[in-house]
């Protein structure tokens, strides 16, 4: 079972940032369960085989006020994929630095189709330039020492992975373009 954790403050945004992820996961015949990050209990994490952290809207930074809700990440031995805001949380929890700390950084804003250069293969995306869908106002200044950068756009870091654990992050939205990222994450043994 895949646990999809919604980072959306507004319930209406779940339809835009969570439902499309659920659609890709379900298309593989995988069962999933959805919980908002405020409501996630220890038992939800125990029951899950893998965890996906969703993105949220451009103006929603509410998760920065509740970082204590993600303290489980540091000890998590299960595969985790963070999308957009989900990646920012992973970066933050593992000692990296987010540009702006919850406030819009004008020169980091990316909205729409965008080109990203993958320095090596990443969850089904091969090395080289790829089109992605971006929707974010913040950027990643640096990742923690246990993380490796896999892809960058001209505005900064776009894909990361923990050096020894199955913890991944993408700043772009693979539920729009690049479904293979979610599909390959779901298929990890």
């Amino acid at each position: 079972m895949i646990l999809i954790i919604s980072l959306c403050k507004e319930k209406l945004h779940d339809l835009e940032f969570v439902k499309p992820i659920e659609k890709v996961v379900s298309s593989l015949g995988e069962k999933c369960s959805v919980k908002n990050y405020i409501e996630v209990a220890k038992t939800d994490l125990e029951k899950a085989d893998k965890v996906l952290l969703s993105g949220t809207s451009l103006m929603d930074f509410d998760y920065f006020n509740h970082m204590d809700k993600f303290s489980w990440l540091k000890d998590c031995e299960k595969p985790v994929l963070g999308i957009c805001a989900g990646m920012e949380i992973i970066v933050h929890e593992f000692g990296g630095k987010i540009e702006g700390d919850g406030k819009k950084v004008k020169d980091k804003v990316e909205i729409g189709a965008n080109s990203v250069n993958f320095e090596k293969d990443f969850l089904g995306i091969s090395k080289g330039k790829h089109k992605v869908y971006s929707l974010h106002q913040l950027g990643v200044r640096k990742v923690g020492k246990n993380f490796e950068v896999y892809a960058k756009s001209n505005k900064g870091i776009q894909a990361i992975k923990h050096r020894s654990k199955g913890i991944y992050g993408v700043l772009f939205h693979p539920e729009v373009y690049n479904h293979e990222v979610i599909e390959n994450f779901v298929k990890i043994n």
């Binding site: 339809l15 809207s57 103006m59 929603d60 804003v109 729409g112 189709a113």
Partner: peptide, 20 residues
């Protein structure tokens, strides 16, 4: 993405409940 940019500039939330 064009509506997202306009809402971003105007300081408004943008909701796309039928997305994907």
């Amino acid at each position: 993405s064009r509506v997202q940019k306009i809402c971003d500039e105007a300081g408004l939330e943008c909701f796309n409940p039928l997305w994907q």
